[in-house]
């Protein structure tokens, strides 16, 4: 028990420290406006990747429609801040966007999660496309032009808060009995079922949680980049998120975090060659799949305690 509290305090301290450090660098101007965009992309991608990892990496349900949930959060928050305005509308927009995304996740998940493997992938892709086409055709979403001049409320503080919440909640969930059940579904559905696990319920649950956080990511995105349109949340965006998850390792939260940082940094440097960026992306994807299909981390997690232990062991020798 004492150990648990000690570790909890250590984690909290390092989380606060990291926040303060980066905030300081922003104040000092070392992280300039240009790098702040990268920072925002990292946080948003972490939320997207961790939430998709819960669905695909941990529960084993292959989804190609994550951008669809993101778009729901983005449009909800954008409309809230455009129509109502004020910081309050921003926070409300985030929550409402997340809840709406979760609800759509439920409606989509209920029927489709009976499907398996690549059929499920195609069905989720189809649903995400339908969401995009609906956004394209509605009046109040601005059609193909989308929504512009969205007030910017998203800043480092909000990004950090939501990223930490997303990671902590997801990790807690995975480590709980409910999370173990989700993993057992990935491992063997039929065995899980005969052990009394309502697999549909847990598949839908992880889908809904994933959609919820994707909604938050979308909301943060809309309020950071001023401008959204349906085309931003198409098939390619879903693939983008999937690439992060696969690169980091399906079933590894730290893998998703590392991959988000890695890819955001790379794409910042490749900004000038947008077309080549996609070619390099594609090549990376194929090479990883051929030579290391489990991704950088596999299902393993990077834990500071293990590093500590290793160092101690080495010193003792």
């Amino acid at each position: 028990m004492k150990d648990t509290i000690k570790r909890l305090l250590q984690y909290t301290a390092s989380v606060v420290l990291l926040y303060a450090l980066i905030q300081l660098l922003i104040f000092a101007g070392i992280i300039n406006e240009y790098y702040q965009v990268t920072l925002a992309m990292i946080c948003i991608n972490i939320i997207l990747a961790v939430s998709l990892n819960l669905i695909t990496g941990f529960t084993g349900q292959f989804s190609l429609g994550h951008a669809g949930f993101m778009s729901i959060g983005a449009y909800t928050c954008a409309l809230m801040t455009l129509r109502v305005g004020g910081l309050f509308s921003f926070i409300l927009g985030i929550l409402l966007g997340a809840i709406l995304a979760a609800m759509v996740g439920f409606i989509i998940g209920m029927p489709t999660l009976r499907l398996k493997g690549d059929y499920l992938a195609i069905a989720t892709l189809g649903f995400a496309e339908i969401i995009r086409i609906i956004l394209l055709n509605l009046d109040f979403t601005g059609g193909a032009r989308g929504l512009a001049d969205i007030p910017r409320y998203t800043n480092w503080t909000w990004l950090y808060i939501f990223t930490v919440i997303c990671i902590v909640v997801t990790v807690n969930f995975i480590k709980s009995s409910h999370g173990r059940v989700c993993i057992s579904i990935r491992e063997d559905e039929i065995a899980a079922e005969t052990l009394g696990i309502n697999i549909t319920r847990y598949k839908v649950l992880s889908f809904v949680i994933g959609a919820f956080f994707a909604g938050i990511a979308g909301a943060l995105y809309a309020s950071y980049f001023y401008y959204i349109k349906p085309g931003l949340f198409g098939f390619l965006k879903s693939i983008d998120i999937l690439v992060i998850v696969v690169l980091g390792g399906m079933g590894s939260i730290t893998g998703s975090i590392l991959a988000s940082i890695f890819l955001a940094v790379i794409s910042t440097y490749l900004q000038a060659f947008a077309e080549f960026r996609m070619i390099i992306y594609a090549v990376i994807l194929v090479i990883i799949m051929i030579f290391r299909p489990q991704g950088l981390m596999g299902t393993k997690e990077f834990k500071p305690e293990q590093v500590e232990k290793r160092i101690k062991e080495r010193n003792n020798r």
Partner: peptide
């Protein structure tokens, strides 16, 4: 799934 992701990679490669 690995093969499917590879196929997506090939698709992006051809397009870009």
């Amino acid at each position: 799934i690995t093969a499917l992701i590879t196929a997506i990679g090939v698709s992006l490669f051809l397009e870009y």
